[in-house]
Design a protein around this nucleic acid. Structure first.
Length: 178
DNA sequence: CCCTGATTCGC
DNA sequence: GCGAATCAGG
C-alpha cells in the first residue's frame, strides 16, 4: 500500500474532520495509525485545533529536542467529542434519589430496542448499556415512565434502595415521636 | 490497560 | 518518503 492521491485526499478529509489517527487508519485500510500520523506530519497538517491554544506555554519540558521546535506547542485538543449528557435523574426531581444506576450488563433488558445517543428521545429510557467510551455504547431506549428518566423496569432497579431508605427513615421518625 | 498524537531514525 | 518503535500523556 502506498499513498495515492486519492488516499492522501481521504486522509486530509478525515483528519480535518477530527477523526483519530487509528480510526483513519482503519478507514483507509492497509496502514497503521503510525503511518497515518507520520503522513499527517509530513503533509504539515498536524495541528488541527480550531480554538487556538490560549496559553502559549504548554508542555515545557521535552525529554529530547523536538525536530520541529516551532510545532511543538500545536495540537493539544482531543479529536474526540466529549459527551455531556445527563445519565442520572435530575437532582431536583427527586432529592432523595442518590443511588446511581450501575451500567449493568447482567440486567435482563425487557422488550426494548437499544439506541445510540443520537437516537435517544425525550421519552426514552436513559439507562446506559455498556461502556460510554465505546462504539457499541447504547441506551435502553424503552418507553420511560412519565417524569422519570428510565423505563419502568430500570426505574425499579434504580430507585429500589432509595425506597428502602425512605421507609427506614420514616420508621425512625415515627419511633422518635412515640 | 485502553487510548491519543509526537518524535526519532533506520530503511 | 515511509512507518515501527518509542515517548508522553489522558
Amino acid at each position: 500500500m502506498h499513498w495515492t492521491d486519492e488516499r492522501v485526499e481521504l486522509l486530509k478529509k478525515l483528519w480535518s474532520e477530527g477523526l483519530s489517527a487509528s480510526v483513519i487508519a482503519t478507514e483507509l485500510g492497509g496502514v497503521t495509525r503510525n503511518a497515518v500520523i507520520g503522513k499527517v506530519h509530513r503533509l504539515g497538517l498536524s495541528g488541527r485545533t480550531k480554538a487556538p491554544v490560549p496559553q502559549a506555554q504548554r508542555r515545557a519540558k521535552p525529554t529530547r529536542a523536538p525536530s520541529h521546535p516551532l510545532r511543538s506547542t500545536a495540537s493539544a485538543v482531543r479529536g474526540n467529542t466529549a459527551l455531556a449528557i445527563d445519565l442520572m435523574p435530575a437532582a431536583d426531581a427527586e432529592p432523595e434519589v442518590v443511588a446511581a444506576p450501575r451500567p449493568a450488563q447482567e440486567v435482563v433488558i425487557p422488550l426494548s430496542e437499544r439506541v445510540t445517543i443520537m437516537e435517544l428521545r425525550e421519552q426514552m429510557c436513559r439507562w446506559p448499556l455498556g461502556d460510554p467510551g465505546r462504539e457499541d455504547f447504547r441506551f435502553c431506549g424503552g418507553r420511560s415512565v412519565p417524569g422519570a428518566p428510565y423505563c419502568s423496569h430500570h426505574a425499579a432497579i434504580a430507585y429500589q434502595p432509595v425506597l428502602d431508605r425512605r421507609r427506614e427513615r420514616d420508621r425512625e421518625r415515627r419511633a422518635l415521636r412515640a
